[in-house]
Computed example of a mutant assay.
Amino acid sequence: MPIHPFAGQAPRIDPTAWVAPGAQVVGDVELGPGASIWYNVVVRGDVMPIRIGARSNIQDGSIVHVTRKLAATSIGEDVLVGHMAIIHGCTLMDRSFVGLGAIVMDGCVIEPDGMLGAGALLSPGKVIKERELWLGRPAKFVRRLTDEEVERNRRGAAGYVELAKMHAGSLA
């Protein structure tokens, strides 16, 4: 099983959440209902807590960590974190989106429906406001998201809940 206690703290995983084989969930981590941790993801709450809300997904190869005595990681509900992303000591609010290979550093906040595009680097302490799209290395504000883009991201989170159920069923 890819669930490991550390320093007296064991991960707390809702019975409806799914952790893929090969993923590693360590320490003070909480996964909400319908959340999914995909193949080869590391969620390491060894020196500060990590909270992942209902129906959020951390896609294949991503890393979620914290900074000792400085920054926990909080991921809200219905959040999409794309493949190979690094989420470190930050806050991803409800319905936020982190694209493939993007990096979110200490003290950053992505507000509801905010989006960090693929490959972007959000440097420490930056805030992506509600419905903003940021791109680049370092990431900068590009434009406001359209209603259609916001709706597509919301459907994506719901789609991952269903996909996780299918994977869990096929591996049972």
Rank of each mutant, 00 (worst) to 15 (best):
A158S: 14
I50H: 03
Y160P: 04
I86N: 08
V98D: 13
H65G: 11
D14E: 13
E151A: 15
I86K: 03
G61T: 14
L121I: 13
I110D: 07
D78I: 05
V26K: 02
V43M: 00
K126M: 13
R143N: 06
E151V: 00
D14F: 05
I86E: 12
V127Y: 01
V66S: 06
I86P: 05
L121F: 12
A17N: 11
G8L: 09
V26E: 00
I128H: 09
D78T: 04
Y160N: 08
H167Q: 09
S170Y: 09
L31A: 02
Q24Y: 01
A20T: 03
M105C: 08
K69E: 12
V150A: 11
A118E: 04
A157Y: 03
P33V: 02
R144S: 12
L145E: 07
N153S: 10
I87K: 03
M1G: 15
I37Q: 00
W134T: 09
L80N: 15
V127M: 00
P2D: 00
N57L: 11
S36L: 04
E111D: 05
L70N: 08
R137M: 15
A172Y: 08
K69T: 03
G169Q: 14
Y39R: 09
G8A: 07
I50D: 03
I103Y: 12
I110R: 03
S36D: 07
K140V: 02
L145V: 00
D106N: 15
P49N: 14
N40H: 06
E148V: 06
M48G: 08
L116I: 01
R95D: 13
W18M: 13
V150N: 12
G114A: 05
L31K: 02
G89W: 04
I52Y: 03
A157P: 06
G114P: 01
V79M: 01
G89T: 11
L171S: 14
P5C: 01
T91V: 15
S62R: 02
A164M: 13
R144V: 07
R154I: 06
I128L: 11
G27L: 00
D94G: 10
L121G: 03
G125F: 08
G22I: 07
N57R: 06
V25W: 05
K129M: 06
G27I: 01
V109G: 02
T146K: 08
K165I: 01
E151C: 02
T16N: 10
A72Q: 12
H65F: 05
G119Q: 10
E148W: 07
Y160L: 08
R51L: 12
K69A: 10
G53S: 08
A10I: 05
K140Q: 14
V104K: 11
Q59D: 13
A158D: 15
S170D: 10
V79C: 02
D60E: 15
P49H: 14
V29D: 01
A157D: 11
I86T: 15
Y39S: 01
T67P: 00
D46Y: 01
L100S: 07
V150I: 15
M48N: 15
R55N: 15
L70K: 14
L122S: 06
A139H: 11
I37L: 09
N57Y: 05
L145Y: 00
R131S: 07
P15M: 14
R44D: 00
R55G: 08
L70T: 07
R152Y: 14
L163E: 12
L145F: 01
